[in-house]
């Protein structure tokens, strides 16, 4: 089976129920989903539709109340804390709406940290981070503290950090939510370019129609359920 058709992620009957203040809330309700390697997919839907919850479940930051998630034929929905951390380290790259960079580290160190976690040697780390910063237009900012950067620059650092470990899947939760439209479009363009170049599967969430239109596939969520799953030409 070629990479383009290989099934990477399978969600079966996934539900996630929260009980804040003894009140049951079903954030995700019986979702079935398949993602193939190299897809560029947008999870769309209004606030509270379950986009972030679904991303957290796929990223093993949370565990489903029922159902199973398989990644490359391995069940990942009931891993221990340590095992799920190791899974995320080797397979997942996260991009958050609020960037979530380590404030005391420089741009270079923030990106390099992922490779340190992966146990990559110093020389290879230097080479790969330098190349990644060049690819994301951050070379000039390499030694700057991330707290000194603009929102767009910080999100580019977050993208570089998400990509540096060669993840199999990138999960981006409202990656343009805190950016102006120009910076947001640039970040999405960067992600799309890297998706095409490295065949990395990218799953991002958004409720912004312009950002949604940049995806190759759109999965529309409402009240924790998939109400539409469509392939679209870019820019539709």
């Amino acid at each position: 089976m070629s990479d383009a058709t290989r099934i990477q992620l399978t969600l079966r009957d996934i539900t996630r129920v929260y009980t804040p203040n003894n009140h049951q809330v079903q954030a995700v309700a019986g979702i079935n989903l398949i993602l193939r390697q190299g897809e560029f997919v947008c999870l769309a839907g209004p606030s509270g539709s379950g986009k972030s919850t679904l991303l957290n479940l796929i990223g093993t930051l949370d565990q489903p109340s029922s159902g199973t998630i398989h990644f490359d034929n391995r069940e990942i929905s009931s891993l221990s804390r340590s095992a799920s951390a190791l899974f995320r380290r080797s397979a997942i790259g996260f991009i958050f709406q609020t960037f979530n960079l380590i404030p005391v580290l420089t741009v270079f160190e923030n990106v390099e940290y992922v490779l340190v976690l992966q146990g990559i040697g110093t020389d290879e780390r230097q080479t790969r981070v330098t190349m990644m910063l060049a690819a994301t237009g951050l070379t000039e900012l390499a030694q700057r503290r991330v707290t000194e950067l603009s929102g767009g620059q910080q999100q580019r650092v977050a993208v570089a950090r998400a990509l540096i470990g060669n993840p199999l899947l990138i999960l981006a939760d409202e990656p343009t939510g805190n950016l102006d439209s120009t910076s947001g479009a640039a970040i999405l363009e960067l992600l799309h370019h890297l998706n095409r170049e490295h065949r990395t599967t990218i799953l991002y969430s958004s409720h912004d129609p312009r950002i949604i239109s940049l995806a190759d596939r759109v999965i529309l969520l409402q009240d924790g359920k998939i109400i539409e799953d469509r392939i679209q030409p870019r820019g539709a």
């Binding site: 930051l61 804390r81 340590s82 951390a85 190791l86 995320r88 380290r89 997942i92 979530n100 976690l117």
Partner: peptide, 16 residues
């Protein structure tokens, strides 16, 4: 809190 959450997301184990 948020920083530790980020580190966890990046793959830092509880031991780390």
């Amino acid at each position: 809190f948020r920083e530790f959450g980020t580190l966890t997301a990046l793959g830092v184990t509880p031991g780390g």
